[in-house]
Design a binder for these strands. Structure first.
Length: 483
RNA sequence: CGGGGUGUAGCGCAGCUUGGUAGCGCACUUGGUUUGGGACCAAGGGGUCGCAGGUUCGAAUCCUGUCGCCCCGACCA
């Protein structure tokens, strides 16, 4: 980075100097969030929340297109319900928040503030489901959940966070498995196409699966510091919950059977993924499809021509709005153009349009894209076709760039010494053979801090030896240090 | 929850060792001049020094406790 560049972004610690600090500087300075008086709980400011709303729209549309309906279940869950599924309680007990009093009176039964809603939803499903004709039940909810975290980081891990959780009930394993994988694919499509974040998808190991699930699948992304981030999960819950909540239905053959269930969720953590996949030393870089502001219009308006420039800028602004482009006009007089450029770049706005006296004279405007820093001039006649095209180009380029980084940082080895070196020095994903034994997985974690992020689909390979124990294996898995 | 760091104006910091009128830069307000990559001049406003005790004639400064935040480890979307 040049000295001049450093001046521009003096408020942001460079990634190379301190990645964690860079992340914190960016989320605060770009006004994505702010700390609140409650430990571990953040305020999502309008800029960050608009991003979330745009993400919600893209995902909600897909969830509904696959036949699900939204509903809302209570924030509070009676202790007795949480206790029912043994693995589930064990998994969540250390991080639940309790409500013990109503006003001044102690409650007869403590309530947990939902860390996830499986239990309360199962309780309701057991009442609603009687017959195979009631199935499948396909419900999603957008809500907040609370998990009392010891170490918190904005968006990545907060004590309260926003998410969606889908909960479905089916007749049999086949249907439940199909649903689980279908929603995993919905997440992949959404995250790769709308957020421009390339993913590895696959199954979680027994160690890493959700508390109470039969099988867990996940989407895994690589952050620009080389650490992996679990960006979403989809679980086949089997009949574990059905059995303890007695969710049964009378099947066509006259037999009373347990339903097969799924649950799946993504959270505001995805915002953290966007920041860490695309961001640079100048700040955020947001994918056009979800960016709160896609285009910022900066008039360069010296006094003598001020009116002229502003009138023209206002016309362009209205045209862009009419084309349903999320555009913002920055005609503040108290800031210089250069100051505005840096400000909007820090906030990650994909495209900036400058119009000044020189442009007007030439009948053109200046376009500056955030992803590459490239500038081009475009005639005013072509502007309305060029802007949408350029936004699409930026979206595609951001994905390609992130994918190249991900691929360049995905290594293949079955040699444990080399594996350790890669994890320590290069980071990123390492695709290695694994025997399938939990003990081996845990040993690798113990020795390298790398975990199996997922077992990819259709990756069986020629026989070889497990990375750690040298047992014969054809199974390849992705390892990485993760957030 | 262990180890380390930090807390003074909205932000970044100095002052603390050696107790004695709380300061600097940016930001903010007003007026004027400016506008193609963080403009300039002038005049202003703003802080019970994280919180609670203690020592002292007197505490931002010394002592004790406590809380928040950050970093590194054990658990998690």
């Amino acid at each position: 980075m040049s000295k001049q560049d450093k001046e521009f972004v003096k408020e942001i610690t460079p990634q190379s100097e301190d990645y964690s600090q860079w992340y914190l500087d960016v989320v605060l300075k770009a006004q994505m969030m702010d700390y609140s008086p409650v430990k571990g709980c953040m305020v999502i400011r309008p800029y960050g929340f608009t991003l979330w709303e745009n993400m919600q729209q893209g995902l909600d549309k897909r969830i509904k297109a696959t036949g699900h309906k939204n509903a809302y279940f209570p924030l509070f869950i009676p202790e007795s319900l949480l206790q029912k599924e043994a693995d589930h309680v064990e998994g969540f007990a250390p991080e639940v928040a309790w409500v013990t009093h109503g006003g001044n009176e102690k409650l007869a039964e403590r309530l947990v503030v939902r860390p996830t809603s499986e239990t309360i939803i199962c309780e309701m499903y057991s009442r609603w489901i009687q017959s195979y004709r009631d199935l499948p039940v396909l419900i999603n909810q957008w809500c907040n959940v609370v998990r009392w975290e010891k170490v918190t980081r904005p968006f990545l891990r907060t004590s309260e966070f926003l998410w969606q959780e889908g909960h479905t009930a089916h007749r049999n394993e086949e249907e439940a498995e199909e649903e689980t994988l279908k929603m995993l694919e919905v997440y992949r499509d959404f995250v790769e196409n709308d957020l421009a974040v390339p993913l590895f998808v696959g199954r979680k190991t027994e160690n890493e699966k959700f508390a109470g699930a039969l099988r867990t699948y996940s989407i895994e992304a690589l952050m620009s510091d080389g650490k992996a981030l679990q960006a979403g999960t989809s679980h086949n819950l089997g009949t574990h919950f059905a059995k303890v909540f007695e969710i049964t239905y009378l099947d066509r053959d006259g037999e009373l059977k347990f339903v097969w269930q799924t649950s799946w969720g993504v959270s505001t953590r995805l915002i953290g993924a966007i920041i860490m996949v695309h961001g640079d030393d100048r700040g955020l870089v947001l994918p056009p499809k979800v960016a709160p502001t896609q285009v910022v219009l900066v008039p360069i308006a010296p006094k003598k021509v001020r009116e002229e420039v502003l009138v023209k800028a206002a016309i362009l602004y209205e045209e862009l709005r009419a084309a349903e482009i999320r555009v913002e006009m920055d005609d503040r007089e108290e800031y210089s153009p250069g100051w505005k450029f840096n400000e909007w770049e820090m906030k990650g706005v994909p495209l900036r349009i400058e119009v000044g006296p020189r442009d007007l004279e030439a009948g053109q405007a200046m376009l500056a894209r955030r992803d590459t820093g490239g500038k081009e001039t475009v005639s005013l006649e072509e502007l309305m076709t060029r802007v949408p095209a350029l936004l699409a180009e930026i979206q595609a380029n951001m994905y390609e760039k992130a994918k190249k980084f991900r691929d360049d940082n995905t290594h293949r080895t079955d040699d444990y010494a080399e594996f350790k070196q890669i994890i320590e020095e290069k980071r990123g994903f390492v695709l290695s053979r694994w025997c399938g034994d939990s003990a081996c997985e845990l040993a690798v974690k113990e020795e390298t801090k790398a975990t199996i992020r997922c077992v990819p689909f259709n990756m069986e390979t020629s026989p070889g030896k497990c990375l750690h124990c040298s047992t014969e294996s054809t199974k390849l898995v992705y390892f990485a240090r993760a957030y």
